[in-house]
Each structure stands twice: as structure tokens, then as C-alpha cells.
Simulated scan of single mutants.
Amino acid sequence: MMFRQLFDHASCTYTYLIADPVINAAILVDPVLEQVDRDLKLLDELGLTLQFCLETHIHADHVTGTGKLRDIAGCLGIVPQGAQASCADRYIQDLELLELGKVIIQALATPGHTDNHMAYMVNGNLILTGDALLIRGCGRTDFQGGDAGTLYDTITQRLFTLPDTTLVYPGHDYRGFTASTIGEEKQWNLRIVGRDRDSFVQFMSHLDLPDPKKMMEAIPANEECGRVSVVV
């Protein structure tokens, strides 16, 4: 398997390239519109054909590159089942498998940050957690159907029940971290460690975070797979 972690500085978003080099086919997870040229260049350099763009959720902080990549590369856009994105080519359900040669990706429903959010387990030993579980943190829960109690259940009952050695690759990072493990997060993620469900809900309700700068632009654009006209 080929695996690359790519970063968009403006939104602190990680995009992931996953590929089977034997069949020269690739998947991009959570592509960013402003980074489409970078991603296409990398695919070309590696001799890969883009088969799928896979979203963890409808993002509020950046516009997805899926629509543009689909137009240029002819790939399919995949979003979680239930997400408000009528433009998608395919909707992926909890526990559904997406196979690309010897790469097997399993969708895991991880709601809470948004009401329709998926994490993706790759070949059974690494997980792309999107905005549900961050390194030493977690996603906010104050819009897009987010719910703090649901996120607590998602993290403690689904993600933290994975093997401790499972590698964690988040959708964002704001402090320079790139990867973690489930074992590390169970020990050091202070959003969760030492809190029961009620205290987590109370803590999340007092974060008082500003709205993402691109939210008014990004959400409607992403409901159209990034096709709404934006200035790049």
C-alpha cells in the first residue's frame, strides 16, 4: 500500500492519498479545492489513476476538491450515507467496505461532530478519524447536527475499543502533530480522559469557538461536491 499525508495550511486540513501501486489506482480522502493542482501533480508523478474521492463528512472550514477532481480525473465522489450531498456518485454506509486492489477501507459511523460522519479503517491497522477524534482533541459539536453526548459515545465506545496499536490520522491538526495511536489518545487526550459523558457535554458547551471563516461558503458548496463558484 502507498500512503501519503498532505496538508492545507489555510484550513489546517489533512488530505490522504491511499493507493495500490500494483494496479496504480488511488483514493483521495478529504481533498481541498485549493490543493487540486498539487494532488493531480502528485498522482501524475506517482503514476496513479484516481478512482475515488472519499469524504469523512460535509466540511465547514474548506471547500472540497471532489467536484473539480471528478471533472478532471473522472473519479467517483463518495460521501457518508445520510449526508446532504445529492451530487455524490455513491453513499457509503457503516461497516461497508471499499476495495481498491489489496487496499481495503472499512467505513465506521462516527457521528457527533456532525450528524453524518465516517471514519475509515485502512487495511485493519490505521484509521482516518476525520474530525471525530483529533490528536489530543476532538471536533467541535455546535453546528451541522453535532451533539457532544453522541461524540463522547463515538469516541469511547467505538474508536477507543479499537486495538491500542491502531494508528490514528486525523482530519485536522492545529499544533503540528501528524499522527497518533488509539493507545496514546486513551492515555493523553484530555478532552476525554478523566471525563464522564455529562462532564464532557458540559465542557463542549462552553468552548465558545468562533464559526469557521469559510462556513457560509463551504457548507453549501460541499453539499454540491464543491461545485458552487468560489474564488480560488
Rank of each mutant, 00 (worst) to 15 (best):
P163Y: 01
E34I: 09
C138D: 07
D173G: 09
V122E: 02
M1D: 02
A19D: 06
D196P: 07
I135C: 09
M216P: 02
S86C: 09
T56E: 06
L134N: 09
H57D: 13
L167D: 01
Q81I: 09
A119M: 12
H117L: 14
E45P: 00
L167S: 08
H206A: 14
C75Y: 07
F200E: 01
D30F: 07
Q5G: 00
Y169K: 06
K68D: 10
T114M: 11
D131T: 04
I182C: 08
T49E: 13
V103Y: 00
L43R: 03
D37N: 13
R70A: 13
D164F: 02
D89Y: 07
F52Y: 15
G124N: 01
L100N: 06
T49N: 13
T141M: 10
R197I: 08
I78E: 04
G67P: 02
G139V: 11
A83M: 13
D61E: 10
L48A: 03
S199T: 15
A25S: 14
L43M: 03
A10L: 10
G226V: 07
L134E: 10
T15C: 04
M216S: 13
P170Q: 13
D61F: 05
T166R: 00
I182Y: 05
D30V: 04
A221P: 06
I135K: 07
C138Q: 05
A73T: 11
P210S: 04
D164Y: 02
C225H: 12
I192A: 03
C87T: 12
Y120R: 05
C75A: 14
N123S: 00
L28N: 04
T56M: 06
Y14G: 01
C53M: 01
P212M: 11
L50Q: 06
A10V: 03
K213E: 13
R227E: 03
A25V: 04
P212Y: 12
